[in-house]
């Protein structure tokens, strides 16, 4: 059963130190800023964060990093024009980084959510990111063995959710949300709208409620 939390702080209750936290968003689009702010207040530390980027500006993921709560970041693209919080931590040796090609990041979480033990992927063959990994030639093409990424918790943003936990997203803010929702033991979604049971057309539900444990309403500037 999906819990409708009254506050973001209630939604992130129980996240333990040392957790692997999947954080949705591509840049700021789809980033669950209210849940991250609540996680900062909640206090869990020594976290391993999996997200496409490593924070923008001073808010959201960047604020969690700045608060010193993150031991390691697994992401595809840490370096951006406004990733100064991460950049300084990394250069000071205060944070670990694992760079993963963006499609592998998505597929490794998809595999986790789908119960796949590992998969052979053509991305990165012959590059430094494949060093030390098992390879296999299948039908004349080379592949690298990639392992799933399981989250203890996923924090995602969505457009609307219903009391079953069914979610729909908005435009490119969808990005990693549906994949991360499947890959974590506990998935927590901040939604711009909570709608009544039956108000979401079952044909357009993107993330079925089975993947969603808690939702919380957070008003957004966007519609």
């Amino acid at each position: 059963m999906t819990l409708i939390a009254q506050t973001a702080l209630e939604a992130v209750e129980g996240i333990k130190d040392g957790s692997t936290v999947l954080v949705g968003g591509f840049g700021m689009a789809g980033m669950p800023v209210a849940l991250i702010d609540a996680l900062i207040e909640q206090g869990a530390t020594d976290l391993e964060v999996v997200s496409n980027n490593a924070g923008n500006g001073d808010t959201g993921l960047a604020a969690l990093l700045a608060a010193g709560r993150v031991r390691k970041v697994i992401c595809s693209f840490p370096r951006q024009s406004d990733s100064y919080v991460f950049d300084d931590l990394y250069r000071a040796g205060k944070i670990e980084l694992e760079v993963v090609p963006q499609g592998n990041l998505a597929e490794r979480m998809r595999a986790a959510g789908a119960g796949i033990g590992a998969f052979f992927c053509p991305t990165g063959v012959g590059t430094p990111l494949a060093e030390g990994k098992e390879t296999r030639t299948i039908d004349g093409r080379d592949y690298v063995l990639e392992l799933p990424i399981h989250g203890d918790v996923a924090l995602i943003g969505a457009h609307a959710g219903d009391p079953m936990g069914n979610l729909v997203y908005r435009k490119t803010a969808r990005n990693f949300g549906p994949v991360m929702a499947t890959a974590a033991a506990t998935t927590i979604a901040q939604v711009s709208h909570i709608v009544a049971l039956g108000d979401l057309d079952p044909e357009v539900v993107v993330t079925p409620g089975i993947f969603v444990d808690r939702i919380v309403h957070v008003a957004q500037e966007t519609p």
Partner: peptide, 12 residues
């Protein structure tokens, strides 16, 4: 600071 994004996936 290494950053690969989607470049490797696109390339292949």
């Amino acid at each position: 600071i290494p950053a690969v994004g989607g470049a490797m996936d696109l390339a292949i």
